[in-house]
């Protein structure tokens, strides 16, 4: 008899917790001033008035924890979008949430609004996109293939508008806009928000996870096994979109985390959402922490937008995962 799903995956989940702690450690130790592991623990808890203490507490810890939160949130949003659309290739941006955010932020930059406005503008743009898509797809009967088609077209529309704004913008502003579009954690120094969003998202998704498992079997079967499928679809859409909106407004449209983290976990542990959700969140969080560490150290003192690294790293990894999962299928 196969072993109990929870018992079977406990070792893996424990390993992922260790990976997450390890990635946080590496990120805190690495930078222009490297801090040895032996001192790190002391510096985390005791203010000795040193420069190292201030570097850790004012720069690295907030940014690292923000990366952790955003990475976890993106992985969660990816899992949810994939379950909603019953397509393992869906990512958090597939329905145009990030496009709406980008148009709003680029607009704000073009108008010269101060930095503090960018995150709220991004969130407002994402929210507008979520509502617009819902209104467009909800006329008549709500079904996910209609949602997907409408969302993909809406995303294409946003990206046309993004090109339009970019072509209007003065050259001085272009680098800032491109950094935002690629996804960048340089300004993300308030980790409380992404961490709270991650926690709430994790709790809600775990609560949905038994129903998500059934939703993968198809809407009819899920309904026959006791899931209120229409309500579930709307709830997943809203939750996944809000998580994406939160991540995008904090760090821009960082790609591939929402695609790769769930995929890695599916290969390692199957598609049971009760395992997949915490596992993917841990992998996504660790990946983004490591990617961001690389983004700020690889060509120091210059910084790369972290989205460039997740994409550079994401494409080959994704191809590898795809190859591996097809290899196992035959």
């Amino acid at each position: 008899m196969p072993r109990h799903p929870l018992r079977k995956s406990l070792p893996l989940l424990s390993l992922l917790v260790l990976l997450a702690i390890g990635s946080l450690g590496v990120s805190l130790m690495t930078g222009s001033v490297s801090i040895p592991a032996a001192d790190l623990w002391q510096l985390l808890w005791h203010d000795d008035g040193s420069v190292q203490y201030r570097i850790i507490h004012e720069l690295r810890l907030p940014r690292t924890l923000s990366a952790f939160g955003v990475g976890g949130v993106l992985a969660l949003a990816g899992v949810l979008m994939q379950a909603l659309l019953r397509n393992p290739l869906a990512d958090p941006y597939i329905l145009g949430v990030s496009g709406g955010a980008a148009v709003a932020v680029l607009g704000a930059m073009l108008l010269g609004l101060p930095l503090a406005w960018h995150a709220p503008m991004a969130f407002a743009g994402a929210l507008a996109s979520i509502l617009l898509l819902f209104a467009l797809a909800h006329q008549g009967n709500w079904n996910t293939s209609r949602l997907l088609l409408t969302g993909v077209v809406l995303a294409a529309g946003w990206s046309a508008l993004i090109s339009f704004v970019l072509s209007l913008s003065p050259p001085m502003q272009l680098p800032g806009m491109l950094f935002w579009l690629m996804g960048d954690l340089g300004d993300a120094l308030t980790p409380t928000l992404p961490l709270v969003v991650l926690l709430i998202g994790l709790i809600l998704s775990l609560w949905l996870s038994p129903a998500l498992n059934l939703a993968l079997l198809g809407p009819q079967r899920a309904a026959a096994l006791g899931v209120k499928i229409r309500r579930l679809h709307i709830f997943i859409y809203v939750l996944a979109s809000l998580l994406t909106a939160a991540a995008v407004s904090i760090a821009g449209a960082i790609g591939f985390i929402g695609l790769i983290a769930p995929h890695m976990l599916r290969l390692l542990a199957g598609s049971d959402h009760r395992i997949l959700i915490p596992g993917a969140a841990l992998i996504g969080a660790s990946l983004l922490v490591l990617a961001d560490t690389a983004a700020r150290t690889l060509i120091a003192p210059m910084q790369l937008p972290v989205g460039v690294l997740t994409a550079l790293f994401g494409v080959p990894v994704f191809l590898l995962l795809l190859h591996k999962s097809y290899g196992e299928r035959t």
Partner: peptide
């Protein structure tokens, strides 16, 4: 109604 998602027979 075939699922587009990989899953094992036991899970199903």
């Amino acid at each position: 109604e075939l699922s587009g998602f990989p899953g094992t027979l036991f899970e199903t």
